[in-house]
Design a protein around this nucleic acid. Structure first.
Ligand code: MN
Ligand code: MN
Ligand code: ZN
Ligand code: ZN
Lengths: 132, 132
DNA sequence: TTTTTACTTTAAAACCGTTCTAAACTACTT
DNA sequence: AAGTAGTTTAGAACGGTTTTAAAGTAAAAA
C-alpha cells in the first residue's frame, strides 16, 4: 500500500503537505521524533512547511493511529512511528528513547480496571541513569 | 518526625515558605497535584507564595525525594506525594491519575538494561477510556 | 467542466506552563 | 553582631503548542 492509499484509508485527504510527511515517516524505518525534528527533516529534503501545519499533521496522524505519542514528562512532545504495542527505555538526562519490544517484557498480574473504564493501552517506561 | 525535621533531614532550610508547602504535602494523605493546584491551596489556607517559589520548592522537594513527578505527556507537570514504588491509571480525557499499588501488578521478565546504564525506576501507565 | 462546499495551509499572534533575572530578604555561621 | 550563603519575589523572558483568520486546495455537486 502506498502512502496516498494509507492516507485515504485513514480518512485523510492526501494533501501535498501530508504526502511529504508520510514520505518521511511511513517508510518502514521506525523513529522517535519531535515536531521540530520533523520540520528540520522536511526543510533538508528541499521542502518547507509551517510549524502549524507540522503540528496539525501530527495530530491527524496520531488520531488515525498512523503514529503514536510517547508518554513522558519531557517538555517537548515525542512521537513514534512504531505503532506496535511496545515500551521504552528513557535516558532522563538526554531524553533519548529506546524501544523495548513486547517480547522483552512481560506483565504478569494486572490490576483490576476501575468500574466504567476500559484498558486503553499500557506503557512501561524504564528510566535509565548512566552507570558511573 | 515533624516537618521541620523532615526538611532538615533532607538538607533543606526550613524556610517559612517550605514549611507552608510541607504542611500541605507531607501530612500523610497522598495526592497528585500540579504547581497551580498547590498554589491555590496555599492561597486558600490564608498564605500566599509567588509561583516561582512554588516551582523552586517543588524542584527541591523532588530532588530530595520528598515528592515525585509522574511521567505523563500532559502539558502540565504532575507531582505525587506518594514516594513509594507504585504505578498509575491515567484517564486521558480528564488527566486524572489513580494509584496502582506495587502488589497489584507484577512485571515478570525485564529487558536487559543497555550497556553503561542502570535501571533508575520503572513506571507503568495504564491509560483508561470511559466504557460506552 | 464549472461551481460549490468543506477542508487545509499559513504567518503571525496569542497562549500558557515554566524558568530566569536581579534585587530584597532571611537563615545560618562565625 | 556581622558576615555569607541561600531563598524569595515580581516581572520578564522563554519555548513549545494552539489559535486566528485569510488565502488556497481537494473533493463533491451540479
Ligand atoms: Mn511538562
Ligand atoms: Mn508537551
Ligand atoms: Zn518506540
Ligand atoms: Zn501516585
Amino acid at each position: 500500500m502506498n502512502n496516498k492509499e494509507k492516507l485515504r484509508n485513514a480518512g485523510l485527504r492526501p494533501t501535498k503537505q501530508r504526502m511529504i510527511v508520510a514520505d518521511i515517516l511511513l517508510n518502514g524505518f521506525n523513529r522517535h521524533f519531535t515536531a521540530e525534528n520533523l520540520q528540520d527533516e522536511i526543510n533538508s529534503s528541499g521542502n518547507s512547511m509551517s510549524i502549524a501545519t507540522v503540528y496539525n499533521c501530527l495530530k491527524k496522524f496520531k488520531n488515525c493511529g498512523l503514529i503514536k505519542q510517547v508518554e513522558t514528562s519531557k517538555d517537548t512532545a515525542i512521537f513514534d512511528t512504531n505503532t506496535d504495542y511496545h515500551h521504552h527505555f528513557l535516558n532522563e538526562e538526554t531524553g533519548e528513547l529506546i524501544d523495548i519490544e513486547n517480547e522483552e517484557i512481560s506483565l504478569h498480574k494486572l490490576p483490576e480496571i476501575p468500574q466504567g473504564y476500559l484498558n486503553n493501552g499500557i506503557e512501561v517506561i524504564i528510566k535509565l541513569k548512566r552507570h558511573n
